[in-house]
């Protein structure tokens, strides 16, 4: 018994020391991102009516709260390295009012080497976007009502614009799961027969009030993009990059988003959210930190 134990311990020690000797010098480094919110190339100035978007709306931004998830580094050789140990941890809440939230750091060693970019999901994808994933604020305050699809807002971008009447009108540019609504010609019964979508369980049993049209399907508006940038992770060092959201691009990149057309609230306007998300694909870039 004793002999066996000793033999075991000694051999383990031998193995460990052997490993140490043959081990290459550390081949891991770290990566961290600092999130910047910019408008027209300058840091976002909240609560200041100083911006004009492509559609000609003069506007201000009061706050931006959003989720980014599935952060993955793209290797120069095409390999993929997730930033976090698990996909559950690979979700970050970012808030223009909370400075700590602007810092994103991998929670595991990142292989040293050359990389060619970052891939991430804006918002939360279908698998991650489940109600009650977050019970604590501020993340829990991002919940998206069950009737509208459940889960979480991908983003709340709040502000005001000067409308056609010259009035300072609030806008809530909120993105999340979109809905397809029932159209005339179908009865409530039809709705329940063919209205099952993935997220339908959220709405099981709901009969909408008379003057609300029933929801017949949900649309996941999240999108995944790759931001190109050549960078290196050096062993034992932290590579620091800036992840920039160019706020104005939500309103004018691929299409012109006009607040006068869509009004202040879009959670129930899939067309507006869709346009927002098409533009959003262009709203991010990556750069080396100074």
């Amino acid at each position: 018994m004793h002999k066996i134990t000793w033999a075991g311990i000694i051999s383990i020690l031998l193995i460990i020391s052997a490993c140490q000797k043959t081990d290459e010098p550390a081949t891991f480094g770290q990566i961290a991102f600092e999130v910047h919110h910019e408008v027209d190339g300058e840091n976002l100035n909240t609560d200041a009516l100083i911006y004009t978007n492509g559609a000609g709306n003069r506007y201000m931004v009061t706050e931006i709260h959003w989720f980014i998830s599935n952060l993955t580094l793209i290797g120069a050789d095409g390999s993929h390295t997730e930033m976090m140990e698990s996909s559950e941890e690979n979700i970050f809440y970012i808030d223009t009012d909370i400075e700590e939230s602007w810092h994103i750091k991998a929670n595991k060693p990142i292989p040293a080497g050359r990389y060619s970019g970052l891939r991430f999901t804006f918002g939360l994808d279908k698998t991650l976007n489940k109600s009650h994933r977050f019970v604590n604020p501020p993340e829990s305050f991002m919940f998206w009502p069950t009737y509208l699809g459940g889960g979480y807002h991908y983003m709340k971008l709040n502000g005001k614009w000067i409308n056609t009447l010259g009035k300072n009108e609030p806008f809530n540019f909120h993105l999340g799961i979109g809905q397809e609504y029932y159209e005339a010609g179908k009865t409530n019964e039809d709705f329940y027969v063919f209205g099952r979508s993935d997220n339908y369980e959220h709405c099981e049993g709901y009969l909408p009030p008379e003057n609300l049209s029933p929801v017949i399907a949900f649309i996941h508006n999240n999108f995944t993009i790759e931001l190109p940038l050549d960078f290196e992770v050096k062993s034992g060092q932290t590579t620091q990059l800036d992840l920039v959201m160019q706020v104005e691009k939500w309103f004018n990149s691929r299409e012109l988003y006009d607040h006068d057309q869509w009004g202040g609230a879009i959670m129930q306007q899939q067309a507006a959210m869709e346009m927002g998300c098409r533009n959003g694909v262009e709203a991010f870039h990556l750069r080396r930190s100074n």
Partner: peptide
Amino acid sequence: FILFTTEEGADCFHCHGGFGN
């Protein structure tokens, strides 16, 4: 409940919670 939690309804949830809060 639907009115409480929809923007086109009574729109109370952003400040006064709901299913997720």
